[in-house]
Amino acid sequence: MESGLMHHVALWLAAFLTLGIFSFLYRDNTWYKVCEAIFVGISAGYWFVAYFWDNLYTKFWVGVWVTPMADRPDDWYVLYVGAALGILMLLRLVPKVGWISRWPLAFIVGATAGLYLVTYFASNVMLQIEDTVRPIFGAENDAPIYEIIGNIVVAVGTFTGLIYFFFSKEHRGAFGRAAKVGIFFLMITFGASFGYTVMSRMSLLIGRMDFLFSDWLKLIK
């Protein structure tokens, strides 16, 4: 791969940065601050470059200029709309007309609101309801008992959980008790997700430790 020296420099650099970030756990210190400054600079630069080449150049410039006419999709010209919105956005740099940048912003907000409204309605409300509506047990009664209990739990949990989210009705009486059961279900959900995630998070730390012990210090083969 790389020459020996370059590889060593790379390893030591990566180790220096790794330990610098870890040092934050003890307390804020100069080493961490240096790593933080490097991180912000390098990553902001990364995205600046990536946005330029991937979006402005590859998407817009290539789309309206480089690609030969015959190979273009029939709606290539709409890319100009994007560029126009982008330029309006950049007018923010000119104090006198900076307010025009609200137009592209308003467009983005409106389009996002419209898109989310229908897609979330379709994929979450409709689909989740459809999934909840299922028999608790079937004709043959061959479903194992844990599954039957599970199905009841899903139906009751979804029902009471939704009741908890009601805003315009006071949580009192039977309704209040149902909402209370709902919050119990939510809490079990949160606990379970938390416990389940621990393994993922630990893996990341193990990965870093592995780098320090084996790649850098070569303590293990």
Binding site: A113, G114, Y116, L117, Y120, F121, N124, V125, Q128, I129, D131, T132, Y146, I149, G150, N151, V153, V154, A155, V156, G157, T158, T160, G161, L162, Y164, F165, G182, F185, L186, I188, T189, F190, A192, S193, Y196
Partner: peptide
Amino acid sequence: WIMQFPNTAGQRAILIGISLGIVSSSL
């Protein structure tokens, strides 16, 4: 079992709620 059933119930209630919240705030 906990992940498959109670967790599903909670997630579903949250998801349906979120989507209705999105509908109303988008409106």
